[in-house]
Amino acid sequence: MWRIAIYETVYIIIYGLYTVFEFICGMFEYVYQTVFFTCHEFLFPSEKRARLKELVSKIKKKPKHLTVLLGPEDAEVTDLANLVIWCLASQIVFISFYDHKGSLKKKEEKLQLEVKKHSGDTAQVIWYTDENSNLENGFKGSKVHVKIITDEDSKMSAATITKLLVESENEDFTIENIHKHFVKQFRFPDPEMGILFGKDYCFYNYPPWQMRLTEFFRFKSAKSITYAQFLNLLVKFSQREQRLGK
């Protein structure tokens, strides 16, 4: 009996110490971010440009589709709009946001306005909303497709496809054929890269079929992400290698 009491006490102590440790780390990072980073930003602008350039030169390959998992926190529309703009700048053609809480879908118009404010006239941002996508052919400038992934794109889509297969009496159960159906439903290619925001590493019902080969990177919060950090993630992505079972 007294043994269990000892174990429990030790557990509570470790748990508590870890909480303190995490808090101090968080504080330290916050101070580092605000003080050091802002100083850097305003005092040495030329150096900043050189650093960004160096980061860009390290990016050897880019994802075609970047997917962003918002996690438990409610992200600011401005931060998400930044991500869209940075995708435009980095020639990433598809970006999607997944919010399991469903609150981003309600703010979609706000996000569209925010992106429009910053994207300029030469860029084309194509939104995949519920009804249709306003695709314009023959457009020459930089282009990005944006989609907000909802629950319907997730496991539910497998049920939808199953019903379709029954109705059409299509008996072709190869992975290739089913994949075609998933692509048709999802309208985006499979994401090669994913950014998860939040403290916990969890997918919250992200569409399972699509994340087969996605390289995931976790970032503590959407609130603090800067262009340099975004580029840093792209550098990390370009260092990954896939062997596809070999």
């Binding site: 019902n205 079929w209 995931f216």
Partner: peptide
């Protein structure tokens, strides 16, 4: 050190699983 799922239990771990790479 790999950070992808490589076609393993996609359906089952996409919900509330804690991921540990």
């Amino acid at each position: 050190g790999e950070v992808r799922l490589s076609d393993f239990l996609l359906w089952q771990i996409s919900q509330h699983t804690q991921i540990c790479f």
